[in-house]
Simulated assay, not measured.
Amino acid sequence: MANPWAGEVALTIDGKRRLLKLTLGALAELEQELESGSLVDLVQRFEGSRFSSRDVLALVVAGLRGGGAEVARSDLMQAEIDGGPMAAARAAAELLARAFMLPDSK
């Protein structure tokens, strides 16, 4: 089960439930992969529903790596994601939100 307080998001890829997480290292790799802009720009694209499939793929790959999987972008090019592109986009958006979520101050 994914632990949202640890920044984890679950996504089923090729029939296997995977945990994705954006660690600091995964975020650094993600930022390096982005050809333009920064992580803030990426967050703004998601908030404004202006993200691309490239953004979604980069986030899912970074999340898988942060979750401990050794994957490359090419590994996901033919992958079957339960729920299709919309589920992948939802998981990517949740990853970003959870990575930058502030702890509850109560």
Rank of each mutant, 00 (worst) to 15 (best):
L24W: 02
G66D: 05
R98N: 10
A92Y: 10
R50T: 09
L39M: 15
E70C: 01
G63K: 01
A58C: 05
G63Y: 00
W5P: 01
A6V: 09
E70Y: 01
S53I: 14
E31A: 09
K21H: 03
D41A: 09
S49T: 13
L20P: 09
L42G: 05
M1E: 05
D104A: 08
L42S: 03
L30D: 04
S38M: 05
K106R: 11
A99P: 10
A91V: 12
G83R: 05
V43H: 11
G48R: 15
K106E: 15
P103T: 05
G66K: 00
K106P: 14
V56G: 04
V61F: 07
E70A: 12
A2N: 12
A88I: 11
G48A: 14
R17C: 05
A99H: 01
R18T: 06
L22H: 01
K16L: 05
I13D: 02
E31K: 10
W5H: 11
A87I: 04
L20K: 05
V9Q: 03
Q32H: 12
L95P: 06
K16C: 02
D14V: 02
V71W: 01
A10V: 04
G25M: 02
A26E: 04
S38Y: 10
I13K: 03
A58W: 03
D75T: 01
S74G: 00
G83T: 06
A72G: 08
L24M: 09
A89L: 09
R98H: 15
R65P: 07
L22C: 08
G84T: 06
D104K: 07
V43A: 11
F51I: 06
G84Y: 12
L30C: 10
S53W: 15
E31G: 13
D55T: 13
L19V: 09
V71G: 00
R17G: 01
L34W: 08
N3A: 07
R73I: 06
L57G: 06
L34T: 09
S74A: 08
G63P: 03
N3I: 06
L39C: 12
D41Q: 10
F46W: 14
V43D: 13
Q78I: 02
E70K: 12
R73W: 07
M101T: 13
A91D: 14
R17T: 14
D104N: 04
V61I: 14
P4K: 04
D14G: 02
R90M: 15
R18K: 14
G63W: 00
G37D: 08
A97L: 15
M86H: 10
N3P: 07
L19R: 10
R17H: 03
G48H: 14
R54N: 10
E47Y: 03
K106T: 08
D75A: 02
A10I: 00
S49I: 09
E33H: 11
S53L: 15
Q78W: 07
A72P: 01
A92C: 13
E33Q: 12
D14K: 01
L34P: 05
L57C: 06
G66S: 08
T12C: 02
L96E: 07
G84D: 03
F51T: 09
K106G: 13
G66R: 02
F100A: 08
A89Y: 14
V43E: 14
R54T: 14
Q44K: 12
A2R: 01
R65D: 07
F100I: 08
P4L: 03
A69V: 03
A79C: 00
W5R: 13
K21S: 09
P103K: 07
